[in-house]
Amino acid sequence: MMSGFSRLGALGLLTAGALLSATACSSGTTEVAPAADGKPEVVAAFYPLQWLTEQVGGSDVHVTGLTAPGVEPHDLELGLQQVSDLQDAALTVYVKGVQPAVDDAVDQGKSFDAATAVTTIPAGEHEGEGEHGQEEEHGHEEVGYDPHLWLDPSRMATVATELGERLAAADAAHAQGYKDRAARTAATLTGLDQEFGKGLGICTTRTLVTAHEAFGYLADRYKLKQVGITLDPETEPSPARLSEVAKLAKAERVTTIFTEALVSPKVAEVLANEVGARTAVLDPLESNPSGDYVSAMRDNLKTLQTALGCTA
């Protein structure tokens, strides 16, 4: 039987294929259909932004999600038609640093980078993490911050308010409707934020060991500590990183290693076995969940409460 270190070392040789197994073979885009009814065409780069845009835009706009369901947003590639559609849209809603292809294609005069509406946090760094770190692979070095801001409902509420203003400016005839829906959406998100604050107020442990570092904003908002096995879903964790995470998980008595739907659970499962923990799915909401944004976040809250031993 292999020692703990040997098992973790051998695991490093398996992770590249395992972590890449969720990558789609196609470009992962959806066609941006023309708005035949004359409504403004708004493109949302990936699911959480699509949900938010639909809430704020309502029936006054035609919203298209650029990333197909089940596709990692980071893997998105654009064809010539998608680039043309982005530039023709009345507004494109995106987060700079998530999808380099979108960053390069958007018309800056007709786009809304949600990261500009909130206070961002620095991107994570791991020494010796594969050949390419998260920043180089996905453009985070260029932006200098963690782009996963949608996992904090309070920041999403701020984005909703600003999105209402942007849509009102792009379609003055329906300006009040956009602002009213933005206010209602922000209120819903503020309520969700309060649920998280109460639900994660008193916990046995406050350490999250996650498949990749997507939950920095959630941790920042609710005073949790995120420890990512990798910086992003496609980075191969080194044996040294795996050993480091295992040691920390044991020291902090972590009971759960979190994985996610679009990433192979193999790494998390072996690590959980090594430290005597279980695994559970924590959804980074990078693709369409079974419900919607709010229900998926509430599912995350329940998962966190169980894993962290929280009492409301």
Rank of each mutant, 00 (worst) to 15 (best):
G70N: 09
N273F: 13
A240N: 12
S154C: 02
L304W: 11
W51K: 08
L11A: 04
E236N: 10
R253T: 14
T311A: 14
T306L: 05
K39P: 03
P73C: 11
A160T: 08
R155T: 10
Q87C: 03
T23I: 15
G17V: 12
L167A: 00
V93E: 03
Q134N: 11
A272S: 15
E129D: 11
A175H: 05
G139I: 05
F215P: 01
P153M: 05
V56R: 02
N288R: 07
C310L: 08
Y145T: 11
Q305A: 01
S59M: 03
H126E: 12
L192R: 03
A44V: 06
D103I: 11
P48R: 13
E135S: 14
F196L: 12
Q55R: 14
R278K: 15
T15P: 04
G79Q: 12
H74Y: 10
L86C: 08
V263M: 06
R221T: 13
E77S: 13
Y217F: 11
A90D: 14
L13R: 14
L308S: 02
G216S: 08
F258D: 01
G4Q: 12
S154W: 07
L49C: 01
E77M: 10
A114D: 08
E274Y: 10
E162L: 01
A182H: 01
T67Y: 00
E162V: 06
L80D: 00
D113I: 01
C25V: 15
Y94E: 04
A117M: 12
T190V: 13
E269G: 07
R181S: 00
